[in-house]
């Protein structure tokens, strides 16, 4: 099994070393690729120091562009599986083997590490909880099955999904739209219950205004993805 662990990172100098070491401990031998989205701090140096390879973007692309760069490289290098872990330490890399196990055994194209699988987990704020509930309602008829944590960025994908994502991946707020992209290919996904942690360092850049923009963008993106012609084969 050829696995690559990708970590999209923007100004994660404070957490990136620990995240990389945790990944190395969780999946020994798997290469770790940090995609640096033009950080203003020493994220790149810290990642290299911790033993990761770094894909340095020439300018800030945002999360979607950053993750897709990792998917493209992974696809070109012939990896069979890619696990994506955030660089802020919220995802516990110890859960990666469970995600991979489900990915292989259930014959699905993507597995999501879910905070709210089977309705469990606590929402970090009321607006966030409401937003997630709204997305669940919107996605349920589109995907044909329930998704409990559509905003989770803790995912593992196989080579089929990798091929699709390396060609077509939502750019600004990718997680939810990526599910719609997969559905259009008739791909399947599963959720695995995970416990997310607090950020190890730094502060979240999410503000109420950004959350509102996020919701509008995502709903529009989902609509566009549904209406778009099936161009990617």
């Amino acid at each position: 099994m050829k696995l690559l662990v990708i970590i999209p990172a923007f100004n994660e100098e404070g957490a990136i070393r620990t995240v990389i070491r945790e990944v190395q401990a969780a999946v020994p031998g798997a290469p770790v690729l940090v995609i640096d989205d033009c950080s203003l701090d020493e994220t790149k140096a810290a990642a290299r120091e911790a033993g990761a390879q770094v894909l340095p973007l020439p300018h800030h692309l945002g999360l979607g562009g950053c993750v897709q760069a990792g998917y493209k490289l992974a696809y070109e290098l012939g990896f069979d599986y890619v696990a994506r872990v955030d660089g802020d330490g919220q995802h516990n890399p110890a859960d990666i083997p469970r995600l991979l196990e489900v990915l292989q055994k259930k014959n699905v194209q993507m597995v999501i590490g879910s905070r709210y699988s089977e309705g469990g987990g606590e929402y970090s704020s009321v607006p966030r909880g409401l937003g997630i509930m709204l997305f669940r309602m919107v996605l349920r008829p589109i995907l044909g099955k329930a998704v409990h944590d559509p905003t989770s960025g803790f995912v593992a994908v196989n080579r089929e999904a990798l091929k699709v994502f390396s060609h077509s991946f939502p750019l600004e707020y990718p997680e939810i739209e990526a599910l719609v992209v997969l559905q259009r290919k008739r791909f399947q996904f599963e959720e695995v219950e995970c416990i997310f942690r607090d950020r190890m360092a730094g502060q979240s850049t999410i503000t109420p205004m950004k959350s509102f923009r996020y919701m509008i963008h995502v709903l529009l993106g989902v609509l566009v993805n549904i209406l778009r012609k099936r161009a990617v084969s």
Partner: peptide, 17 residues
């Protein structure tokens, strides 16, 4: 621009390797 930036990054990665 995004595709180009990603390609530049990937090529830089290969050159470094």
């Amino acid at each position: 621009n995004i595709a180009l930036a990603q390609r530049v990054a990937i090529l830089e990665f290969h050159i470094r390797s």
